[in-house]
Write a protein that binds this DNA or RNA. Structure first.
Lengths: 242, 242
DNA sequence: CACTTCATATAGCGTTGCTATAGGTGCTAG
DNA sequence: CTAGCACCTATAGCAACGCTATATGAAGTG
């Protein structure tokens, strides 16, 4: 099985890398394996992708497109929080389906160097959370909520990948997922004393207005006014209640 | 600076590896660097530790001892949930203080192979959760809760490590931490009752914020700022939706 | 045809993790 | 005292790694 077909070398390299990455059972994938399977020599790889990481980034980008495509299709349900829940599950599912690819995407952490893919995933999550914020269902600013949820989502997925397949307990995912969504949403009603109910209504309203203003521009304020207005709004919505 | 002293080679290897790991600024650490700094040759390393990973495991074990030692000391506070909160913070703190070591411990994931250290950390967390369970403060079985919390804890720490140091927002940790602890504890009482009407818009949100601000004023804005803010809010509230 | 530009190949550099083999050291037994 | 035996360490080198200096081919343009 090789990709010596009529496809251009760049494509063959991408496919070879993707295939090896998908079937490598945890072992490292070398450039020599890739170029051999693609039927090209080393300089071709470096001409097109710069270095090994560049090639992997390209594979990851393709994988991410696929991962996102599924997502955007059925995202517009009526319930933003339900969409977020489904997005979490998609994320875990993607990680377990292609663990090697997922590890290249989210598991290859080095200090101070954020994988590009993480920012994209965060943006995607934030987009969904914005809808929830507009509907007044959010307790915290969408950006912070997105980062928090994604961090937990990645952590859970990595944990599940690290376990042997037959032992994987998906309940871990569901439980963590619900905990995170519940914590950022306004669906809650703590009977533990209404310590923050008065203040939090201000915060919730500010968050909702902030999100609403950014999705549909009001022409009631000039751009300079709007800028200052949004800054104040942010200040209010990020005021901590603890 | 080298460890050619009178210490046995095994110890010198451990110290050299630990030092290089701590100062390697993300770059990979080679066995040749280690053996050179330790003042020994390659076979000595493999005689004592089997392979490179064995040496790193030993370093990690020592680091983990240190990490746990801090923990056990002040663990017996009266409030189990507060202990868990502190343990979470210790975990993040340890990861940010020694990111390279942390990445060897928790970031080196491969499918189906669970780092030993993860099981230990889980056990430690479960122990604390057990106390909470005995006190009737737990909503879910301690084991599952420990796994869930630890997964989120690792995810957050990895995210923070991946960010450049000056941009690290520790609020991400605090927020995720409280979300997880809150979710597994019995302090909650969700009544999944009345859904709010999802008809929110800019105007509705502005009105809500306006009302909320006037009933309980936030101290995030000065009085003059607040005056202008409310005026703009009024202008938005009374505009017709575009 | 001459010229540039892009794409691929030959060959090899420096480094990696690791090891086959052998030599040195300190101990106990005869 | 010496022979033998573990234990520990060094010399030297293998195979594989990521990557590249250099050269060759193909394709388009004047």
């Amino acid at each position: 099985m090789s990709f010596d077909g009529q496809l251009p070398p760049k494509t063959r390299l991408l496919r070879a890398a993707a295939e090896l990455l998908a079937n490598s059972a945890g072992a490292a994938v070398s450039t020599r394996q890739i170029t051999k399977l693609a039927g090209v020599t080393a300089p071709t790889l470096y001409h097109h992708f710069g270095d090994k990481e560049g090639l992997f980034d390209a594979v990851v980008a393709a994988g991410f497109e696929e991962y996102v495509a599924d997502e955007r299709d059925f995202a517009p349900s009526g319930q933003p929080l339900e969409d977020i829940r489904r997005m979490w599950d998609k994320h875990v599912q993607f990680g377990l389906k292609q663990p090697e690819l997922y590890l290249v995407m989210f598991g290859n952490i080095r200090p101070g160097s954020r994988p590009v893919i993480v920012a994209d995933a965060e943006a995607l999550m934030e987009e969904l959370l914005n809808k929830a914020a507009v509907a007044g269902q959010l307790n915290v600013p969408p950006r912070e909520a997105a980062r928090s949820i994604l961090a937990a989502n990645v952590g859970v997925t990595l944990m599940l990948i690290a376990e042997k397949a037959p032992e994987r307990n998906l309940e871990l995912s569901a439980m963590t997922r619900d905990a995170m969504i519940f914590a950022v949403s306004t669906e809650q009603a703590r009977d533990n004393g209404a310590e923050d109910s008065g203040k939090s209504s201000v915060v919730v309203a500010a968050i909702a207005l902030n999100a609403a203003l950014q999705s549909s521009h009001s022409d009631q304020l000039s751009s300079s006014e709007l800028k200052l207005f949004l800054e104040w709004l942010h200040r209010i919505s990020t005021s901590s209640t603890s």
